[in-house]
Simulated assay, not measured.
Amino acid sequence: MALAGFALVALSGSIAPALAEVTTETVAAPAVASAAATSNAELPRFVPSTDTAAASIVPFQEAVVQPLPTEEEARDIGGGVASWYGREFEGRRTASGERFDPDEYTAAHRTLPFGSKVRVSRNGHSVVVRINDRGPFHGNRVIDLSQAAAEDLGIRSAGSGRVELAVLGND
C-alpha cells in the first residue's frame, strides 16, 4: 500500500507540469473538429465475408471438461493435524475474496496457491478440496477444512484429526 502511494506521488509530480499546459481550447478544439469531419457516409460498413474458410469457423465452442488428475499426477506434501471451520463463518469473505460456504469442499492452507486442488486422506477415506483461504493460524495444524470435508473424513465431532495431503495436477 505504501509503495502504491509513493508511486502516485511520484507520478503526480511528473504529470502536473503537463496538465498546466492543457487549456480548454486544446481539449475542445480536436473533439469538435473530429465530430464535424465524421459523417454517416464515412463510417465503415460491415460486409459479410464470402470466404468459405471463414464460414467454417464455429461461432460458439463448447466447454472442454477436464478429467480429474490421476493418482500419478498427485504430489504428496506430507501430513499433520487438520481442523475445520463451519457455520459460524458462513458468508464471510475468505482470503481469496469469495464467500465461505461450509457445504463446499474448500480449505485454508498457509502457502498453497488459491485454487489448488488437494487430496486429504484419513483412515482410508479421501476428499478433494480447493484452497480458497489462508490458515490455520493456531497450533501445529496443516490445513483447515470446510465442515462438509471434515464430516466426510470423520473429524467433525473430534474437532481435528491426523491427515495426509497431496496436491493434485500440475501445481
Results as ranks from 00 to 15, higher is better:
residue 130 R to C: 01
residue 56 S to T: 14
residue 134 R to T: 07
residue 152 D to G: 03
residue 77 I to S: 14
residue 69 P to D: 08
residue 56 S to K: 15
residue 90 E to M: 07
residue 114 F to R: 12
residue 151 E to D: 06
residue 40 N to V: 13
residue 42 E to I: 09
residue 36 A to W: 02
residue 26 T to A: 12
residue 128 V to F: 10
residue 28 A to R: 13
residue 141 R to L: 14
residue 73 E to C: 08
residue 30 P to S: 10
residue 79 G to I: 06
residue 61 Q to R: 14
residue 68 L to V: 01
residue 61 Q to W: 13
residue 142 V to L: 13
residue 103 D to E: 07
residue 73 E to F: 10
residue 113 P to A: 11
residue 53 A to T: 14
residue 76 D to A: 14
residue 52 T to D: 13
residue 150 A to K: 00
residue 28 A to K: 08
residue 71 E to V: 13
residue 71 E to T: 15
residue 95 A to I: 07
residue 155 I to K: 03
residue 51 D to R: 13
residue 80 G to H: 12
residue 119 R to G: 04
residue 132 N to C: 12
residue 112 L to P: 12
residue 121 S to C: 00
residue 33 A to Y: 09
residue 68 L to E: 15
residue 33 A to V: 05
residue 97 G to T: 13
residue 126 S to W: 02
residue 140 N to Q: 14
residue 140 N to A: 15
residue 46 F to N: 09
residue 51 D to P: 10
residue 148 A to C: 03
residue 75 R to P: 02
residue 31 A to D: 05
residue 44 P to S: 12
residue 85 Y to N: 07
residue 149 A to R: 03
residue 41 A to K: 13
residue 128 V to Q: 11
residue 94 T to Y: 03
residue 148 A to T: 00
residue 39 S to M: 06
residue 88 E to H: 09
residue 145 L to H: 00
residue 42 E to H: 09
residue 145 L to M: 05
residue 126 S to I: 00
residue 138 H to W: 10
residue 52 T to H: 08
residue 62 E to N: 11
residue 93 R to L: 15
residue 33 A to D: 12
residue 45 R to F: 07
residue 49 S to I: 06
residue 100 F to A: 08
residue 118 V to R: 02
residue 124 G to H: 04
residue 90 E to R: 10
residue 145 L to Y: 03
residue 112 L to V: 04
residue 65 V to T: 15
residue 99 R to D: 12
residue 114 F to E: 00
residue 118 V to W: 04
residue 60 F to K: 04
residue 97 G to F: 12
residue 118 V to A: 03
residue 134 R to P: 06
residue 105 Y to A: 00
residue 133 D to A: 08
residue 69 P to F: 09
residue 137 F to D: 12
residue 137 F to M: 06
residue 99 R to F: 11
residue 147 Q to F: 04
residue 106 T to C: 04
residue 38 T to D: 08
residue 154 G to F: 00
residue 106 T to V: 14
residue 154 G to I: 00
residue 97 G to K: 01
residue 93 R to W: 03
residue 63 A to N: 14
residue 116 S to M: 08
residue 35 A to T: 11
residue 79 G to Y: 02
residue 145 L to D: 01
residue 94 T to S: 11
residue 141 R to K: 12
residue 112 L to D: 14
residue 101 D to R: 09
residue 125 H to R: 15
residue 25 E to V: 05
residue 147 Q to M: 07
residue 131 I to L: 02
residue 81 V to R: 14
residue 73 E to G: 05
residue 129 V to P: 07
residue 63 A to C: 08
residue 125 H to W: 00
residue 156 R to M: 00
residue 150 A to M: 00
residue 40 N to T: 11
residue 38 T to Y: 07
